[in-house]
Computed example of a mutant assay.
Amino acid sequence: MVAPARAEAAVTSPRGGGPTGPTGTGRRKPRISFRHRASAWDRRYSPYLYISPFFLLFAVVGLFPLIYTAWVAVHDWDLIMGQGEFIGMENFAHILGERAFWVSLRNTLSIFILSSAPQVVVAILIAYLLDYNLRAKTFWRMGVLVPYVVTPVAVALIFSNLFGDRYGLVNSTLQAIGIDAIGWHSDVLPSHLAIATMVNFRWTGYNALIFLAAMQAVPRDLYEAAAIDGAGKVRQFISVTIPNLRPTIIFVIITSTIGGLQIFDEPRMFDQYGRGGADGQWQTMTLYLYELGWTRSDFGLASAVAVLLFLLIVAIGLVNFVITRRISSSEAKR
């Protein structure tokens, strides 16, 4: 009876934990409950689940239309007859050979430059004024947002009448002070200035609120230290405010670039015909795309213009990214 007892003791754990395993340690792998497993899965996979609706929505309304537009651009696609034969890059070659495309590209870049640069500068100045302890500051801050709330069609109709060639308020005022009337609807640069004014009217207040939020995040200790060192308001604005606004400025420039290159409502409603002028004085790429698709009923050519516009936006975005990276690296070295 002694031998079986010794044998039993030999196969049991020295700590009384049961039979020993192959290694002889006597430890078993602890059993994880389903609750702990679910908690681990939640911590690991729930963030992806929370952000998945955005990516699903983007895939449906953003990525798929982009891919499908590229597919249409390489086919002979009629509005009525539908998809035709595969023609490769012929639509792109045809578009690049048309004078109207290059005119629309010139107009798009011109209106973009005339609207984006003044828009950012004026928005920063307005935000700087709103950052002070003004009376009824909520009223003023909401007031700058009113033009953004107004529909683009209403803004375009109002400004098209203001910049009327004969009976517009702007020309009437110029003639009253002895300046000749300007052909806002007949000349190239004046029409671009008028359309850029519409864009600035709508978006300057919106960007000013973005800059205001960034200014309020700047530590007030920096201004107090600058004031102790003898810096005035202008010097504080240049040396303290602007450097802290650099990421926000880059963000606004990129968003205004994307929106400015896709401008459609303002030039479309600038006159009663909506074709960009008699000789395409202010016909943008989006208007040219619209004309190809719905006037000429050629979706292949229109899709080719859309792809070229997308590539233009990506190219300018990459330029902004490179400039941003250089600025960030130079600031890090300092």
Rank of each mutant, 00 (worst) to 15 (best):
M1P: 10
A3F: 12
P4V: 11
A5D: 07
T12Q: 14
S13W: 04
R15I: 00
G16H: 02
G16C: 02
R27I: 08
K29S: 11
S33D: 14
S33I: 05
S33K: 07
F34T: 06
F34P: 01
A38S: 08
A38W: 10
A40P: 00
W41E: 08
R43A: 14
Y48T: 05
Y48M: 05
I51L: 12
P53H: 11
L56E: 01
Y68R: 13
T69S: 15
A70T: 13
A70M: 15
D76V: 01
W77E: 01
L79T: 09
M81H: 12
E85L: 02
M89W: 13
L96Y: 00
E98R: 10
R106H: 10
L109E: 04
S115A: 12
S115K: 03
S116Q: 12
P118S: 09
V120C: 03
V121R: 00
A123C: 04
I124Q: 08
N133Q: 15
T138P: 02
F139T: 14
W140E: 04
R141Q: 15
V149N: 06
P152W: 07
A154I: 15
F159D: 00
G168M: 03
L169S: 11
Q175E: 14
Q175M: 12
Q175I: 01
G178I: 06
G178F: 05
G183D: 06
W184N: 01
S186P: 00
D187F: 09
V188I: 14
H192V: 03
A194I: 04
A196G: 03
A196L: 01
V199L: 07
Y206E: 05
A225Q: 14
A227M: 09
D229W: 12
G232R: 06
K233M: 05
T241V: 11
R246F: 13
R246G: 04
P247H: 06
I250P: 02
F251K: 03
I254Q: 05
I254T: 15
T255R: 10
I258L: 15
F264V: 01
F264H: 01
G277H: 05
Q281L: 05
Y288D: 11
L292V: 02
R296Y: 15
D298Y: 10
S303G: 05
A306R: 02
A306F: 02
V307E: 02
L309S: 12
L311E: 00
L312D: 00
A315L: 14
A315E: 00
L318I: 11
I323V: 15
R326I: 15
S328I: 09
S329L: 10
S330F: 06
R334F: 07
